[in-house]
């Protein structure tokens, strides 16, 4: 929901970044206020996942220019775990498997770590079990997933649910969902989207990275951005997603080039 007077959560200006010496982000700008839902769309390889991981602090990417402010502090100054504790959450496009580490222990450690840093009470294993089972219901997840190793042998859809489960537990300020919809069948998509909608409120913000407009039927964005070659080249309302669906991405690039040319 857009409220012009709501405060700015995330302010990205002129962000440039390299990976292995190749420039991937080339001056990206984005402003996200609390209460808003943004969708970032764009062709494969345009840098959407790179942008998401840079916000979360992945060390493989080198920021070469620009700034990222989160709730008034320089996000780039913070270690990845500090960003998470400050309320930045990334639902991964490809959640990694961690064999041997029990999902319930992992979930409890992450929950308690984040709670502690917010000055809140930790939950003991029994309390946590009640708490997490409640959250799992929201995502129609079987409690069996607590007994397994983190993401190990989970199907693509199960991994995505496990990501949104963590989002539900950690109650982030800013949630970035990197292609959470891909690999989900229509029922799972409905459940996951329902979960995300329940979590959205006036104090947080959600950035959906997606390829398809399909997800946006379930989670309605306030803004739709088109990303190409490491930049956001067009921003519109939710109707832009429908237009992209029917016309593809090429025309946006053409329009953008023309506009840049006119400016020059």
């Amino acid at each position: 929901m857009i409220h012009q007077d709501s405060k700015v959560l995330l302010e990205v200006s002129g962000l440039c970044a390299n990976v292995n010496g190749t420039e991937i982000l080339k001056g990206l700008n984005l402003t996200v206020r609390s209460g808003e839902i943004h969708a970032i769309m764009g062709p494969n390889g345009s840098g959407k996942s790179t942008f998401s991981k840079i916000l979360a602090g992945h060390s493989a990417y080198e920021v070469t220019g620009g700034t990222v402010m989160f709730e008034g502090q320089d996000l780039l100054e913070l270690a990845p775990e500090e960003r998470a504790r400050a309320g930045v959450f990334l639902a991964f496009q490809y959640p990694i498997e961690i064999p041997g580490v029990g999902n319930s222990q992992f979930l409890r450690l992450t929950y308690n770590t984040v709670q502690t840093h917010r000055g809140k009470e930790e939950l003991d294993p029994l309390e946590f079990d009640d708490f997490v089972r409640e959250k799992m219901k929201l995502l129609e997840m079987s409690p069996d997933f607590l007994e397994r190793s983190v993401n190990e042998g989970f199907s693509g859809g199960e991994k995505k649910r496990n990501e949104i489960l963590q989002m539900a537990m950690l109650d982030p300020r800013l949630a970035i969902l990197d292609e959470t919809d891909s690999g989900l069948d229509i029922d799972a998509l409905r459940v996951v989207a329902g979960g995300v909608n329940q979590l959205a409120n006036k104090d947080n913000a959600i950035v959906l990275v997606t390829h398809y407009q399909r997800l946006l039927n379930y989670i309605v964005p306030d803004y739709v951005h088109v990303m190409e070659a490491g930049r956001i080249i067009k921003t519109g309302g939710k109707e832009l997603a429908l237009e992209l669906e029917s016309r593809g991405y090429d025309w946006v690039g053409v329009e953008h080039k023309a506009a840049m040319g006119a400016q020059a």
């Binding site: 979360a56 990845p80 775990e81 998470a84 504790r85 580490v101 992450t110 770590t113 963590q166």
Partner: peptide, 17 residues
Amino acid sequence: FYFAQRGIDAEAAVSMI
């Protein structure tokens, strides 16, 4: 990185793994 993204530092992550 996955652990860190969930607030858990490298030391605690290694210990858990």
